[in-house]
Design a protein around this nucleic acid. Structure first.
Lengths: 193, 193
DNA sequence: AAAATGAATTGATCTGGATCAAGGCTTTAT
DNA sequence: ATAAAGCCTTGATCCAGATCAATTCATTTT
């Protein structure tokens, strides 16, 4: 169960066997069926989850009822609403499974205790958060500076794995464009080649 | 010089007098005149800077020559291109002063040494990065889900300080809209009242 | 196996915000 | 003090991408 978990963590920090045993105690496994919610808007986000298997998405729903995907998470990625998780405030997001999924989850109490008991995990999360900032910044620039076609091409470039596994209407939502526009862009690019 | 600095840090973690002395040794002060660059596109970002006084902005320039503001930093805020800072790769950003500014700067070597020597600073940055993720996520949602008017209203709500100090053409760039559109939005809102 | 639901495509039309252009007002530089 | 540059506003026009609508082809569900 924890094999992918530690593979992932050891890419950023090295944990001793004892530390790994300690860390394990903070996490609980959970399975999610496709379409099942992990979090619904209005609830506080009680867990951060690492995806061991499957794909999740988080999204919000705007005043017109349109869904906007904030984030995907596949194997080795974390999922959760950090703001709600840390503050305890109700989340504005929904999180659900796009494919059947297996997760390892930690609560805020567990998270904070782990930071103190295993300082290497504090380092792990500092580094994880650094990388998260970098990728959010990229996406923001994409969203502000580029045309729909450029946004799509940047995604193809940066995350080809996603395009293999995720339906195009969800990719469109993630890019902040409509499925129709994405379809037309792909058609145009296919013809060009 | 370090008064604002420690006020800011002590809001997130508490440092002993000895730790404060230690931390000070990693930072160098720097003054910037209005319009002066801290970083130009193509250079690696050698420093993270905490703003003691004044206002900075970071921005990129798209293929049509249009500037897009990524981030503002006023007193107590950090500025830098984290990606370039950590990786050593050339930055795609420019950073300059909107007002005369005073900074405290740290290099990557200093940063990493400080993380080891003063573990409370590792905690400080983990928390800082957490908060940064939250605000970037908000901005991303704004950018993807909202109309120009809604984006402006959310900024008025969340960062009124910025609107007091920053010219409207730069605010427009930060919001990802044109100065003309912002001007029309403000006119409309003023009439409504 | 039939029916229902969901994903993707294509066409026709519409619109929010961009672009282009010009004028006034306020800093900054000489 | 005068010129130049930057900032903000207002008007006229344009366009990338949204919206609306219909069809086809999976994939579930019953």
């Amino acid at each position: 169960m924890f094999s992918l978990f530690f593979t992932h963590i050891n890419q950023k920090v090295e944990l001793s066997e004892a530390e790994q045993q300690e860390v394990k105690t903070f996490f609980a496994p959970k399975k999610l069926r496709k379409r099942q919610y992990l979090l619904q808007e209005g609830e506080p986000c009680k867990y951060l989850a690492l995806v061991e298997k499957g794909v999740l998405r988080s999204y919000n729903v705007d005043s017109k009822g349109v869904e906007h995907i904030i984030h995907f998470a596949m194997e080795g990625w974390w999922m959760g609403d950090i703001y709600s998780f840390l503050s305890g405030e109700p989340s504005g997001y929904n999180i659900d499974a796009i494919e059947d999924a297996e997760l390892l989850m930690i609560t805020l109490e567990g998270f904070e205790e782990m930071m103190v008991k295993v300082p290497r995990m504090e380092r792990y999360f500092r580094i994880l958060f650094q990388n998260n900032i970098i990728s959010k910044e990229r996406r923001l620039i994409s969203s502000i500076s580029y045309t729909a076609e450029e946004k799509y091409l940047r995604l193809v470039e940066s995350s080809p794995e996603l395009l293999q596994r995720i339906p195009l209407n969800l990719v469109a939502s993630y890019l902040g464009i409509t499925p129709e526009t994405l379809s037309r862009i792909r058609k145009k690019l296919a013809q060009k080649k």
